[in-house]
Design a protein around this nucleic acid. Sequence first.
DNA 1: CTGAAAGCGCTTACAG
DNA 2: CTGAAAGCGCTTACAG
Lengths: 343, 343
Amino acid sequence: MAPRQKSDRVTIKTVAEDAGVSVSAVSKVLRDAYGVSGPLRERVRASMEKLGYRPHAAARGMRGQTYTLGVILPDIHNPFFTDIMSGVNAALERTQYQTLLGIGQSSLGAQQEVIDAMIDRQMDGIIFIGPRMPPPELDALAAKVPMTIIANHSPTAQAYDTVNNDDFLGATLVVQHLVHAGYRNIAMLSLDLPPIEQLQVTTQRELGYRQAMEDAGLRQYIKVVMSEQTPRAIQAAARQLLRSRGRPEAIFCWTDFVALEVLSVAHELGMKVPGDLGVVGYDNTTYCDLAQNALTSIDQSGQVLGLQSARLLIERIKGRTTAEHFVVTPRLVARNSSQPVAR
Amino acid sequence: MAPRQKSDRVTIKTVAEDAGVSVSAVSKVLRDAYGVSGPLRERVRASMEKLGYRPHAAARGMRGQTYTLGVILPDIHNPFFTDIMSGVNAALERTQYQTLLGIGQSSLGAQQEVIDAMIDRQMDGIIFIGPRMPPPELDALAAKVPMTIIANHSPTAQAYDTVNNDDFLGATLVVQHLVHAGYRNIAMLSLDLPPIEQLQVTTQRELGYRQAMEDAGLRQYIKVVMSEQTPRAIQAAARQLLRSRGRPEAIFCWTDFVALEVLSVAHELGMKVPGDLGVVGYDNTTYCDLAQNALTSIDQSGQVLGLQSARLLIERIKGRTTAEHFVVTPRLVARNSSQPVAR
DNA sequence: CTGAAAGCGCTTACAG
DNA sequence: CTGAAAGCGCTTACAG
C-alpha cells in the first residue's frame, strides 16, 4: 500500500506550533474540554481552520472516543430499516459522529461476527436493531459498550436503552380496523423465529392480534401462520393460506415487505384486493403509497425511532447510567387494501 | 464515559508473553507477514485463541491498515443499492475487512462531508457509488485513498478502478424490446442532474435511448423528461407526460424506483399496463417480480457489481497501481408491463 | 527466523 | 488557565 505522504500531515502538533500553544491545549479545544480561555481557543480554532486540520480518528480511538457509532441491521432488504437509518443520520447531522453499518444477516453466527467487528473497531456505542439474543447476552454486550436497542421489548433492562413502538397496540389497531370494516375471518402472517421471552416485535404483534380477536369475539378465526423472510417462503405460505378451506377474508402481515408479497400472490390467484381479500401491513413504508399497492399499514415512525435511538445513545456515551425506554404510539394509515366489503 | 476495564485487555503483549515470543513476532503472525517459522506461528495462534485475543483496530490504524472499507451511497432508498451492498458484503465475508457505510444524500455538501468522515477514519479504501463529481476531483480523492467507483463511466481513468454495466447497451435493449413489441411512441423518464461529461449512468442511458430510437426510425418520438428523485417530483412528471397530447405508448424509466411510481400514476389515471401504457425499468430489483408490478427491467447484476468492486479495491490496497475497468453486460428481463399490444 | 526499540497522533493525569 | 510527559496497542525498519 502506498504510504500517503507523511511529512505534510497536519497534526495537533502542527496546529500547536502554528498557534504558539501546547499540544494539550489543542487537544482540549478539539474536545471542547473545560479549562481553556476564550482567546486561546480562538487562536487554536483559527490555526486549525488555516491549516485545514482534520483529527486522526485512529489516534483518538487509542485513548478516547472514535466518534463512530455502530448500527446493526438484521436485514438490509426490508425498506423499513432505511427509514430508521434516515432518522439516525438526521440526529447525527451536526455532531462529530458517523455511523458504521453492519448487516447481521439472518444467521446468529453472522450477527456475532458483526458485533465483534464493531467492538474491535472501538465503536463509541451501538444501535442494535431487532437483535436475536436472549437478555443475558444483551446485558453482557451492554457491559462492553453503550447500547440502544430498537425493535425488541425489554422495558426493565437497566444496562441499555430501548426504543420501540407499541407493537401490541399496533396489532390491536389493525384488528379493530378490519373488524370495523366488516372482516371477521382475519389471519396473521408472522415471522418464523425462535421466540425469546416474548421480547420480539413479531411476538408482541401476535399477542396483540390474538387478544384483539378474542375481544372482538372472533376467537374461532384466530390463525397465525409463520414464515421465513425470503420471498419464496412468504409466497408459499400466502398461497397455502389463500387456497385453504376456511380461507381468511383478510390477512394481517407483520411487515409491509410481507404484505407486498401477499398482494402479489392474491393478484396471481386472480383475487381482488379489496373485495376477495383485505390486506394490512406494518411500518407504513414508502411502497404503501403506490396505487398498485394502496396498502393499509401501521405507521410507527421509523425516522423518529432512529432519531431517538441516536440521541439516547449519545446521552449514554456522555455518562448517563440509568435506562430509558422510549415507546412511540403507532397509528393506522388506512388505504384501499382494507376497504369495507359488502358481504 | 465509563473506561472499560483496562487491566484485563488482551493485547499482543499479553499474547507474546503467553507464547514466550516477542511482540513483533505476534504482529507478524497477525498480519500474515513473511519471516515467521511454522512452529512459532502455531504457538502464537494457539495463544491468541486461548486468550481470546482481538486486535485493536485503532492501534492498527495508527501505523498500518484499519481493515475497514468506506462505501458511499448516493441514496439509501433506492433498492438497487441494497443489491450492491449484498455483493460487497459477500466479497468481504472471509476477510478481515468490514464496511463503513456513508449516505451521500443528494446535496454535494453532504457528499463531501461523508468523504471527509471516511478519510478522517483512515479507511483503507473507498467504494464510491454514483459519485457526482468531475474527474479532477475524483483523481484528487483517489490520490488520497484507494478507490473503486460503481456507476460512473470513466474508462480511461488511471487513478481508480470502475465497475459498471453497459448502460448505453441496456437502454438500447429496452428500446429494441419495446419496438419489437409494437410500441413506437416511447418516452424516457430520467434523472435531473447536472451532467458531468456524459459520465453518469443516466446520461449513458439517455444516449443509448436516443441512438436506438433513431436506429429504429423513431426519431420523431424521442422525448426525455427529467425529474428529481423524490416520489412527488416523479409523480408530477409522469402525470404531466401521461396527460399530454401525443402521450407516449411506453415509458422507459431510468431506474425501477421511478418505474414503480409511473405504474402508480397510471393506475390512478385508470390506465391499464400493459394495454394503455408499456413501462420498463432498470436494475431488476426485487420489486419487479411482484405480480402487481410485473415490471420489465434490465438486470445489471448489482450483486456482481458489488462483489467485483470489493475485489478490485482490495487488489488496489494490496498494491496494484494500474487501473481496471470492469463492465457487466446487461440483460433484459421481460415481464407483463411491456407485453405486446394490438393497435 | 527473531526481537528490541522507536514512533504513529492523539488524550490524560499531573504539576505549575 | 497552561504545558511537559507518559502512554494507548499496534507496525515497522533495523540489528542480530
